[in-house]
Design a protein around this nucleic acid. Structure first.
Lengths: 192, 192
DNA sequence: ATACTAAACGGACCATGGTCCGCTTTCTAT
DNA sequence: ATAGAAAGCGGACCATGGTCCGTTTAGTAT
């Protein structure tokens, strides 16, 4: 809602509520993967066009559904207490960031996968951009030569699909994931 | 073709040729992204069911189209001359592997993206499994604590979508990618 | 040659994400 | 209160990946 926004119409607001409620219900009942846009429109007693007008795409809907928990996590690494938030050295902040992200993904995995899929490039998800930038800054501080590209490598190493499938399909424990992340960052950043 | 295979029927062979030729034509003309299964069936003068019987899915078709160049690359890191092939220390083999992979992806990017998308998990692509295993072995040799998980992190860092988008959408030069990969591996494997 | 069988075929059909556009509702200016 | 404009609405429609199943056909055994 840009500041000069010309007041959302009342019917629009009502439908947005309906849709959000219906979507949350459906996700709770059947999981995010099984949510179809038709079913959502039907359950919310709203036309299909309205669903797409509101959220743009299935991925957009999933992002909206995510936004609360996502904001919370973002707040954590931007303003929260160290080592996740500011005040600790980059090495420790990066470790904490990866661990936090892994657990965040394991909690919201279905939604994240659904939000990332079907987007042209998953990097377009605004939250992903922010994470990338965060890591970029820490990597630069730690003396990495090309922090932008390195942050991208790490971003993909933390890909939701990867994490969820490692744990749920390939039976890797979350602890192994976080341990390996710690090893990765520690070796990457230890001073020669 | 398993050894006891009961002889492929002649019409099946003929249709496979037709389909492969038509597919290569379409990819050359319009790019892999724009290839639709309907168009392929039509151009090959074959029913749609036949296309899916042959390749299973769009991703399967793309993998078939890839298999030649993929085998070549695989042969390179398994049997070719060092540093890509056996004979060099893990550090150098990993660097060479990543560089090779990056250029391989840049040549076959569209096909690889199309092969990976729509597959349940991209890790199911057999070639990906082989690459993962290759890196796992080298990482173990280099003293990484959990080579399997670390290899998975590196696998995702070399994701085709990531590489292609970095270069074609975000304007990163291939050289920056290979340099950063070298930095990553060098720091990861240097002995404390 | 004939009859039989399993494989292969083809295209109608389905599910689902997404678009389009004529109709309706809300808000605002008078 | 009224009229006009802009935003919103809904559901028919489209594209595309994928499935199903009745029909055809290549090989084989007699």
């Amino acid at each position: 809602m840009p500041l000069g926004a010309p007041h959302e119409r009342s019917d629009a607001a009502r439908n947005r509520e309906r849709l959000l409620n219906a979507a949350r219900d459906l996700v709770a009942e059947l999981g995010a993967e099984a949510l179809t846009m038709d079913a959502l429109a039907c359950k919310a007693h709203v036309g299909k066009g309205t669903v797409f007008r509101r959220f743009g795409s299935r991925a957009g809907l999933m992002m909206t559904l995510l936004s609360d928990s996502e904001s919370e996590f973002q707040h954590g690494f931007m303003f929260g207490p160290p080592p996740l938030g500011p005040g600790a050295p980059p090495l420790e902040r990066l470790i904490a960031f990866g661990e936090g992200r892994i657990y965040f993904v394991l909690e919201n995995g279905e939604l994240l996968k659904a939000a990332g899929a079907a987007t042209r490039n998953r990097f377009d998800v605004p939250a992903t951009k922010l994470s990338h930038r965060h890591m970029e800054v820490l990597l630069r501080e730690a003396g990495i030569a090309d922090p932008w590209v390195m942050a991208m490598s790490l971003t993909y190493a933390l890909d939701p699909e990867r994490i969820v499938d490692d744990v749920r399909v390939r039976g890797i424990s979350p602890t192994r994931l976080t341990d390996s992340w710690r090893e990765l960052i520690t070796r990457l950043l230890r001073t020669a």
